[in-house]
Design a protein around this nucleic acid. Sequence first.
DNA 1: TTTATGTAGTTGCATAAACAACTATATGCC
DNA 2: GGCATATAGTTGTTTATGCAACTACATAAA
Lengths: 148, 148
Amino acid sequence: MPNNQFRKGELYSFITGKASTAIARRLQKNFKQSGLDITIEQWSVLYHLWKQEGQSQQQLCDATFRDKPSITRLVDNLEKLKLVKRVPSKEDRRINLIYLTKEAIQLQEKSMELANQTLNEALSGVTNGQVEIAKEVLHTVYENLKTL
Amino acid sequence: MPNNQFRKGELYSFITGKASTAIARRLQKNFKQSGLDITIEQWSVLYHLWKQEGQSQQQLCDATFRDKPSITRLVDNLEKLKLVKRVPSKEDRRINLIYLTKEAIQLQEKSMELANQTLNEALSGVTNGQVEIAKEVLHTVYENLKTL
DNA sequence: TTTATGTAGTTGCATAAACAACTATATGCC
DNA sequence: GGCATATAGTTGTTTATGCAACTACATAAA
């Protein structure tokens, strides 16, 4: 393990993920200031449904890297907010397909604009080349660890 | 904003922090397998106390990027586990100084070893140069956003 | 057809986070 | 000294996560 010694120094910031916490908080704050009353966790589910609605809860688990109970409850809360609807699949009665309401569809544009704006605040002073490498590293880390 | 268009592509992975979630889960799993019965959040507080004990709760807030209620409750739980003790400051009676118990001191070596091992699992296949750049980017993001 | 096994989703419980409201102590100014 | 203001920490409420245990349905083999 040749890199071992080198790497020991600053494991803390990697493990605790202060940067992503900071981005999440800032996005939440920007949502609030614009009168958008959803959590970032709820937004992260909507994000995948905007790309493709009618996904099963299991598909949302895989897409958002959450376990099944987490998605059950996020969908519960999104349903209470009248942003999504559970529709039982006709082919497989175990499955709920999740569909967006009109209200949720209307949230897409504004919230994606806020997300982009937040990301630009976050990455101010960072070059595209650096961003690319950071993305690669984070992706590799995720790939290395995603399998339980 | 010349980089705007470029950056829009993959905001999602940045914002949701799947990589740091994955590291945190893996470390938690490695703790459990070694019979270490603490959460990563508790570990992150102990981490700063191992470097310097007798810090105030406010100092721990700053160090761990958490708000005061979060630290109050983490210290509550660490106290229940008999890993730390609150000692009222004699100079300023508003302040609690947090000290480690013998049990907590004994946890340091094993848990840091597991943290290093987890980080090496996470960074397998990533070069030192890439890690350095990723660290810089994450640090810049944190600096850009840390002020509420 | 029955039985075993796997998959989708839910519920209970403990821990943690964000935010607002609160208490107690300290500090600085009149 | 007395009052305003700031700081340290706590408590309540809502939302979210991780894990284990559970129900319901599907599939494949005996």
